[in-house]
Simulated scan of single mutants.
Amino acid sequence: MPRYALQVEYDGAPFHGWQRQKSLASVQGAIENALARIEPRTHNIAAAGRTDTGVHALGQVAHCDMERDWDPFRLSEAVNYHLKPQPVAIVRCVAVADDFHARFSALERRYLFRILCRRAPATHQRGYVWQVKNQLDVPAMQEAANRLLGEHDFTTFRSTICQALTPIKTLERLKITKVETPHGTEVHFDVRARSFLHNQVRSFVGTLERVGSGSLTPDDVERALQARDRAACGPVCPPHGLYLAHVGYPQPPFD
C-alpha cells in the first residue's frame, strides 16, 4: 500500500486532542473520517505527537497508507475537501517509503508557546495565546530556562499520568524572545527536543512565567529541577498558547 506523509495544521480548540477517542471530536478522527470518504474502509493514521485538548499545530506530521496510488496533491485536495468545515488542513502531502513512520522516524519536535502581556482582554488572539496582565522579565526567564538545558531527570515537569518509560530527556533548546505585535507584547518560547514528557512544555512555561513575574528566581527553578518532585513545579499553563510547530526527520519528507 502506498504511504503518504501529511503536514497537518489545526486549531485545537474544538478537539479533545489529536488521538482518536470514542464519541469525542479529535484531529485524528477527523482526518481518518475524511480518508474514509475517499477510500471507504477503516483508516488508522499515525502522528509525530499526540497533542492535548486545546493545543494547536502548525507543523504536525502524520502518515497514512492508501490502497490507490494517489497523486499527492490530489490526495491532499480530496482530504481537505472532506475535512470542511473543521479547522484542520493538510498543508503538504508527499509519497514516502514504506518504512517512514511519522512518530518513530522523527529526530526532533519543536514547540512554540505564546504569552500575550496586556491588561485589556484579548480579542483577535483569544484562544491562541495565554494572556497575563503584566509585563515579564524575559532576561530572568531566559537565565532560568538555561538551567533546564541538556539531559536531566525531568520528573518535576512531568504529568502524574505521563506514560513515558523514563523521565530522563534531553532539552536541546529553550529560547525565550519578546515580540512586539499590533495587539501588544508577546513572549515566545521556542522549545526543542527529540521527545517530550506529557505536559513538559506547559510545565516549563508555567514555571518560567513565575520567574518573569518575580515570584520565582532562576535558582528556584534549578532547585525545582533537582527536587525531582512534581510538587516543586510551578503552575501548568493553559493549552491554548501551545503549538506543535515543526517535526524534524533524517530525510525531511517535505523538502
Rank of each mutant, 00 (worst) to 15 (best):
Q131E: 05
F154M: 10
I168E: 03
E143H: 07
H124R: 15
A164L: 05
L149Y: 02
P167A: 04
E151F: 09
Q135E: 14
L165Y: 07
L174N: 09
V129H: 09
V132I: 13
H152D: 07
M141L: 10
E143M: 12
D137E: 02
Q125R: 14
V138D: 09
D153L: 11
T160G: 11
L165H: 13
F157G: 04
K169S: 00
V129D: 12
R126P: 00
L171D: 03
T166N: 10
L148V: 06
A145E: 06
T170D: 08
L136Y: 02
L148D: 07
I168V: 15
Q131S: 07
N134Q: 14
K133M: 13
W130A: 09
H124P: 08
A140M: 09
R147E: 02
I161K: 13
R173K: 04
L148F: 12
Q163V: 10
K133E: 14
L149H: 00
R126H: 13
G150V: 01
R126M: 11
T155W: 01
R173I: 02
N146E: 11
N146A: 15
A145K: 04
E151H: 06
Q163C: 02
I161L: 12
F154C: 13
L148W: 13
Q125L: 15
L136W: 05
L171H: 03
K169G: 00
I168K: 02
P167R: 02
V138H: 09
L165W: 09
L165N: 11
N146L: 07
I168P: 00
L165D: 15
D153A: 12
T160P: 00
R173H: 06
T160Q: 10
D153T: 13
G127N: 13
P139L: 05
Q135W: 05
A144C: 04
E151Q: 15
A144Q: 02
C162M: 04
K133C: 11
L171F: 05
P167H: 03
I168Y: 02
N134A: 14
E151V: 14
L171T: 03
E151A: 15
E151D: 08
A164C: 12
A145V: 09
Y128K: 14
Q131N: 08
Q125D: 15
I168N: 01
W130T: 08
Q135H: 09
F157D: 04
D137R: 00
H152C: 04
Y128C: 11
P167F: 03
V132D: 11
L171P: 02
W130Y: 14
N146T: 13
D137H: 00
T156Q: 07
W130K: 08
Q125N: 11
K133I: 10
F157L: 12
V138N: 08
F154V: 14
Y128P: 02
C162I: 05
D137G: 01
L148G: 12
K169H: 00
Y128M: 15
Q135R: 12
P139V: 03
I168F: 05
D137F: 00
C162W: 06
R158F: 05
C162F: 05
